[in-house]
């Protein structure tokens, strides 16, 4: 993709982010941080490419290390968000 297409996506996504995040209820700001943490680990895509492709052993090991770090975040982030969200409930009984 050329730079301008990428930039367009980026700028529009910033606007989407702006409106979506303002609509998040303040009560869920901690889960918001946990889940944004998990999704920003989509950087694992870069680490996977580096780890998968032949060509540079150093890049491969850096990639694998990146995969480990990002996986901690992905599994940890989504799991802890799930755990938190499960606690938010309305009480059934008095």
């Amino acid at each position: 993709m050329d730079f301008i297409s990428i930039l367009s996506i980026f700028v529009l996504a910033c606007f989407v982010g702006y409106y979506v995040v303002w609509s998040v209820t303040p009560a869920l700001h901690t889960p918001l941080m946990a889940v944004t943490n998990a999704i920003s680990s989509v950087i694992i895509v870069g680490a996977l490419i580096a780890a998968a492709e032949a060509g540079s052993p150093a890049a491969k090991w850096l990639g694998l290390a990146g995969v480990v770090l990002a996986s901690v975040n992905i599994f940890g982030g989504f799991a802890v968000t799930e755990r938190m969200l499960a606690m938010y409930k309305k009480k059934e009984k008095k």
Binding site: I9, A13, C14, G17, M33, T36, I39, V45
Partner: peptide
């Protein structure tokens, strides 16, 4: 995917 996520998390 990375750009959209980055923009979302950055704005958040």
């Amino acid at each position: 995917a990375m750009i959209i996520t980055g923009a979302l998390v950055g704005s958040s």
